[in-house]
C-alpha cells in the first residue's frame, strides 16, 4: 500500500503576521494522502488562518504549502486542488441548491450532461435530491451544511478543508453529520483537514490530531496518543479533564518532586486510606452524567 506513505499536504515553516501580530509561527504539518487530520485548539490560536493559507485566501509571509505534490504557496485559491467548506457554509442565496453545487463544474466548463449527472450523484450522497430546487434560505442548517459539503465534494478535490463545519448544528445532528463526513471521507479517500475546537469531535473522527497553541503545533499524533501520552501539560489539559499533582511519579506512586503529574479521572480508583500511594480526600460534589457520574474530590 504505497498510498499509505504518499504525502497529501505539507506545510513547511509557515508564518503569518496579521495586524502586527505573529498569528502563525513557523508551523510544520505533514498530512498523508487519504488521511483525516484535525486542527484542534482554543479560539484565536490560528486554526482558520492556517486553513486559509492552505486554501489560498492568505499568502504566508514565510514557508511553503504543498498540495498533492505541487507547491501552491503563492497561487490563487481557484487554481488549487483543494475545496473548502466554510464555517457558515457560504452558500449563494440567489442560486438553488442544484446551481450552488453545479457552480464549480460550470466554472470548469464541464459539459451540461455531465454536470447534471455529477450534481445528482453528489446530492444523492448527501441525501438532498429532494431539495435540489430549493434555495438555501428555505432549508435547515443541517441541510445547508450538507449542500456546502456537496459543493466541495463535486469538485473531486485532492484536499478537503473543513472549517468548524459542525459548529452551527445541534448536538445530535452534529454527531450524525460528523459520522457522515468521516464515512464519506474514508470511502472517497480524500485527504482532509478539519478545524475544530471540540475535543470530542477531534477524538472521534480523526486519524491524527494537531493540537495548536498560539500559532504553533503543540503535538501532532493519533487520538490515542494525544489522550494517553500528551506531550505537554497544555495538551493534557486541553483534551479531557485532568487531576494535576506537583511531584514525581514512579512505580505507581507520586512523591514530592519538582515535576507535574497528571491523572485522568477514569484512572482514579477508590481504596482505603492506608494503601500505598493513596491520597485522602472527601467527596465535594457528585454530578450525574447519564451513564456515569462525575465525582469531585477534595484532597485533605
Amino acid at each position: 500500500m504505497s498510498q499509505q506513505n504518499e504525502i497529501g499536504l505539507e506545510l513547511k515553516g509557515l508564518s503569518k503576521v496579521l495586524g502586527g501580530r505573529v498569528i502563525i509561527d513557523n508551523l510544520d504539518l505533514q498530512v498523508k494522502k487519504g488521511e483525516m487530520v484535525s486542527l484542534l485548539g482554543p479560539s484565536g490560536c490560528g486554526k482558520t488562518t492556517t486553513l486559509r493559507m492552505i486554501a489560498g485566501f492568505l499568502i504566508p509571509d514565510n514557508g511553503t504549502v504543498t498540495l498533492a505534490g505541487k507547491d501552491v504557496t503563492t497561487i490563487g485559491p481557484e487554481k488549487r486542488p483543494s475545496a473548502m467548506v466554510f464555517q457558515n457554509y457560504a452558500l449563494w442565496p440567489h442560486m438553488t441548491v442544484f446551481k450552488n453545487v453545479a457552480y464549480p463544474l460550470k466554472v470548469r466548463k464541464v459539459n451540461k450532461a455531465e454536470i447534471e449527472k455529477r450534481v445528482h450523484d453528489v446530492l444523492g450522497v448527501v441525501n438532498l435530491m429532494h431539495h435540489k430546487d430549493s434555495r438555501p434560505a428555505q432549508i435547515s442548517g443541517g441541510e445547508q451544511q450538507r449542500v456546502a459539503l456537496a459543493r466541495a465534494l463535486v469538485q473531486e478535490p485532492d484536499i478537503l478543508l473543513l472549517d468548524e463545519p459542525l459548529s452551527n448544528l445541534d448536538a445530535k445532528l452534529r454527531v450524525k453529520v460528523r459520522e457522515d463526513i468521516r464515512d464519506l471521507q474514508r470511502r472517497l479517500g480524500i485527504t482532509t483537514v478539519i478545524v475544530t475546537h471540540d475535543q470530542d469531535e477531534a477524538l472521534s473522527i480523526s486519524d491524527r490530531i494537531a493540537v495548536m497553541k498560539e500559532g504553533k503545533i503543540e503535538q501532532f499524533s493519533t487520538p490515542e496518543d494525544i489522550y494517553n501520552k500528551p506531550a505537554t501539560e497544555y495538551v493534557a489539559n486541553f483534551i479531557g479533564s485532568l487531576n494535576r499533582y506537583e511531584g514525581s511519579y514512579s512505580n505507581g506512586q507520586i512523591s514530592t518532586g519538582s515535576d507535574v503529574v497528571g491523572v485522568r479521572p477514569e484512572d482514579v480508583t477508590f481504596d482505603s486510606k492506608n494503601s500505598a500511594g493513596a491520597v485522602e480526600a472527601t467527596v465535594s460534589l457528585v454530578v450525574p452524567r447519564g451513564h456515569f457520574h462525575e465525582v469531585y474530590l477534595k484532597a485533605q
Binding site: F57, P77, N88, A90, W92, Q155
Partner: peptide, 18 residues
Amino acid sequence: VPKNLEEAARDAGASKFR
C-alpha cells in the same frame, strides 16, 4: 455581499472577474 460568498466562489475555481 458577505466576503466569504466571494471566497467560496474563488475556491470553487472562479476567476476574480467571474
